[in-house]
Amino acid sequence: MNLLEISELSVDYGVSGGTVRAVDHVSLFVQEGESVGIAGESGCGKTTVGLAVPLLLPRNATVSSGEIVLDGHSLVGRSEAEMNRLRWKSVAFVFQGAMNALNPVLRIDRQIREAITRHEPEVSKAAATTRVMEMFDFVGVSPTRAKSYPHEFSGGMRQRAMIAMALVCRPRLLIADEPTTALDVISQSQILALLNRLRRDQGLSLVMISHDLAAIKRVCDRVVVMYAGVVVEVGSSHEVLGTQGRRARAAHPYTQALIQAHPDLRGERTLSEGLRGHPPDLSTPLVGCRFADRCPKVMALCRTTPPPTTEISPGHLAACHLLSSGPS
């Protein structure tokens, strides 16, 4: 069964002089116990999709179409009070840069305990404290450090504390936005290992939003690649982000370019061409394929007609004219 199902979701931001459609008819699903990555450059709409699920979008954003169904409950249009009951207990969120969002003047154990007392007022203080200590142990921070202040923790430890806080009400789905981006490689590796352990031991479902394809590949079963507000490719991480010999297995030229933009310690010691140019301006009308201006394989058709979605193998889909009509 699908724990989360997003269908045809569109989100508009009101900006001076009009609206910008940051997310345009995006559909994706997360099965029970599954881990799904959302990848793409900054500004592609991946964070907006993540924020839309717990309805934590900024004030100037509106969901203009689509459905979000979490565990059988439709979420769009719910009141703040109703959402508050679902947040943390059904779906928890680790924000981008969240490790810097801890209150600097409160001890960390108290901040985590607050998440329990806020959402489960029936739990006694003693029971809440026990749960906080268990959580510390579980995310790999010694419970003896629970009474520390945030500045006494390293970045990696603060990120573990944030994950502990997100999980303390035992949500079924965790949405983590760039959970490793500001960390050094060793802390990154430890946080990714922790997320994998949470999935294995707790059956947690996970949506991980990241521009780091290597991190997604390590933690996620499937990946959704977004570009300029639309989904361009979706499939198993193995297929979309894997390589066959030296060639990327990705079907969409955008995904291929993203993969090649990563320096690879096993490959040649060269800098890739990378992606030239910028994503299109979403406040202007868009015709054809949104990636056309930057695509190395662009054809005349791409500039006039939006590409249809093609199924390459079961569950692996991409939206590119090359897959449906052009040369392979």
Binding site: S189, A214, G242, T243, Q244, R266
Partner: peptide, 10 residues
């Protein structure tokens, strides 16, 4: 840790 993240999953 760096190449573990780059590990081919073939």
């Amino acid at each position: 840790v760096t190449s573990e993240e780059d590990l081919p999953t073939e």
